[in-house]
């Protein structure tokens, strides 16, 4: 899975760092997204997808199609 972050869109809400701390971090400077460890994206697919869904500014995307937004139980 390839994760793309568009930092110019990032609004520093920190939902990604909360949802998938293995993959995302926030800059000390302005709280914007940092891709912590892109190599681990395959281990954390579900978290990455959730981060895409929860990001309030649409700053994160992956190369996999987004599942339905309806609540699902795993």
């Amino acid at each position: 899975m390839r994760i793309v972050v568009r930092r110019e869109r990032c609004t520093s809400a920190g939902m990604c760092a909360l949802t998938a701390p293995e993959l995302f971090d926030q800059s000390e400077d302005d709280g914007r997204v940092l891709l912590a460890d892109p190599d681990r994206s395959d281990e954390h697919r579900a978290e990455a997808r959730r981060a895409v869904r929860l990001c309030p500014s649409g700053a994160i995307s992956t190369d996999e199609p987004e599942p339905s937004t309806r609540e699902h139980r795993s």
Binding site: T11, S12, G14, A17, L18, P21, D25, Q26, S27, E28, D29, D30, G31, R32
Partner: peptide
């Protein structure tokens, strides 16, 4: 403004 305030409220 938001970027100036944001780091104070980071998850960390």
């Amino acid at each position: 403004y938001r970027r100036k305030l944001a780091s104070s409220f980071s998850v960390r």
